[in-house]
Design a protein around this nucleic acid. Structure first.
Lengths: 204, 204, 204, 204
DNA sequence: CATGAATGAGGATTCATTCAT
DNA sequence: CATGAATGAATCCTCATTCAT
């Protein structure tokens, strides 16, 4: 490894430290109490150094969110699709999504309940035509379409349907995250009942 | 009215002023920029006086949220129930809820996307047996039960169903609030499609 | 003295302390190194307290400047005018002005060599019609007019003449302030020669 | 060109880049916002490198000022002198000076309203005997002397007269620079009136 | 009951400068 | 000769809270 490479690597390392620390604080204390000072403290550097790696606080948060959410969506894409049972596939995907999010609830809050300009823009889902941009919605659309084709799902506007599947699941998820004390069994009952109603709602 | 009574009343008056001002700031500037000093400014009292009426900032917010949300639920209860069409009644109630919330999005965010301890507890909906506590859920439950009785809604756990109706609607609503730029037509399409799927999901 | 009065007085006292400290720092270290922290240090209060008395740094500076410059102009107005010799009166006034300024050179710099918006506006002198606003220019104008009337000053646009008397004197003054090491005798020779040329320039 | 020579030349080149960049920032953003990092950014070198060529920030500024002002004076010297009309020559030179300065007001401020030790020393004009050092004053002195000889200017101390011509013009100029909003016509009226009075003040 | 001055900690940023590489 | 990461102090300002009056 040459000198420049090691430099490069070290630089990357600090950058990642910052992002990791930011993510950690986000997860531990929530969005509101994420501060440059706290990050600097966490990584045991001086506050100023952070500005070598990021333009400002917003850029840090944006990066954390983007990478964090990206990682989740990545995992989501890896879920195998069962072409014979598109309705089951939808349920499985969304259930996987719920489980992933419940594992890192603070990230979920930081990303999906966040009202900061520039963050909300990165996870928007309700625009008309969004299915062309968001791969996750795209994938949902494909399942729905396939479901319609093989007669398991009734005929409906595909994108709108994908959006409603997502928003309704998002609603359950966000309450599960915010109402921390729900016992596991109740969680499961709610999730099951959610998909019970949702899939019936999609069916012929 | 005796002296002590007037004292009581005056005390109550200032307390309400504080809550009203806090709610106003919340609705105008959002949760993050609500500060004791701004409240004091708004009511034209000194900052110190606020601590006569409330232990700390958290208590103010908790109270505002509680009362604010209560008012919303109150309005909700005033919506007439059409016993012949419980499914329509459900749709109407929830649509009214959406509209009320879209009118005061900052309050919605402050209340329902808020993760502060003590606030989330006041709007929780997912506990088992919650229908005995929350009148709003109770009312939803009655509609569902009636729907089941007259055969318009399939047989399901009533409370769970009410919770899912609420969480799924909440999911759509929260995204509508956070994704600010959605055009009116798209909003309406989403809302309509949401109830299209939801009601089908409830039906026999 | 009642309680409220003493309160009032104490408040005024701190306010004045702040202004005095600001003036002192301005005079000692110059405009660029005036900071809220330094003021707070100087008055031995915490930095935050300053914001009870002034909206922000700009307001402090504006007040210091206004009061400081105002005091100078006040003194200027107290200089007796010799109606028989308006040219001598002009010289005396402007000489007095020079002397006053040379006593507090840092204030002069802070006020008259300052480029901050909001400060420059308070000492502007070149606008057409300014003689209606600035009493100091007004007074100069009166002397000129009188000089014209009794034939000691040639006929010229009065306001423009006042402005040039002021700018040219200001030019000498500003260099005297910035070139610190000029010996007293040289200073006097320059000042005398300045008025020698200036008054000849005004004469018939 | 040998290696050492090229090295010399390259070194000189970077040095000049730094000075050029500093001048540019000075002229664009003003004195207060000139920072080492901005210079480094501008020349696309690292901040550290600047300290190879200059001891500190002050040295850079001093050099920029010196060279910048020198360039202005250079241009001034190129203005042709009309020996028949030394008074007109004085007016033309000083008017040219005003115009040059009004073209780059930030430089003017940085140089001539600057109170930093080491800068003021480089543009001083008021010392006795300065005409032997400053070519610009020297040139002014020659015109005055010639004017006296041919009877167009009354007999006066030549150097002092040159200094007053310069300070009075400088006074007008500095206010024109600081009072930004003066309309063009008013500017011209002021400048004309300034020379009207000044030249009359010099005449027999 | 009410005041409002005061604190002390914390917020984001920017800076000149140093120094190991 | 040049890098650029790192520092530490400084910038202005806002905040919740306390407490003597």
């Amino acid at each position: 490894m040459g000198i420049t490479e090691r430099r490069e690597a070290e630089k990357e390392a600090v950058r990642n430290k910052i992002l990791y620390a930011a993510g950690k604080i986000l997860a531990r204390d929530g969005y509101e109490s994420l501060s440059i000072r706290k990050i600097a403290n966490e990584i045991e550097y001086s506050p100023g150094v952070i500005y070598h790696y990021f333009k400002d606080k917003a850029e840090i948060i944006a990066t954390v969110v983007e990478e964090g959410y990206g990682r989740i969506l990545q995992k989501l894409r890896e879920i195998p699709v069962d072409l014979e049972n598109p309705d089951k596939s939808i349920e499985n995907s969304m259930k996987a999504y719920i489980e992933l999010m419940l594992e890192t609830p603070e990230q979920f809050k930081a990303v999906l309940l966040n009202d900061t300009v520039g963050i909300a823009d990165k996870v928007n889902m309700l625009d008309e035509g969004i299915s062309k941009e968001r791969k996750s919605i795209q994938s949902l659309c494909r399942m729905i379409q396939h479901g319609i084709e093989i007669g398991k799902i009734r005929e409906m506007d595909i994108e709108l349907t994908a959006q409603i599947i997502w928003t309704s699941t998002h609603g359950l998820l966000s309450r599960l995250v915010l109402e921390k004390r729900i016992p596991k069994e109740q969680k499961e009952r709610l999730i099951d009942h959610h998909f019970n109603i949702l899939l019936k709602g999609l069916s012929k």
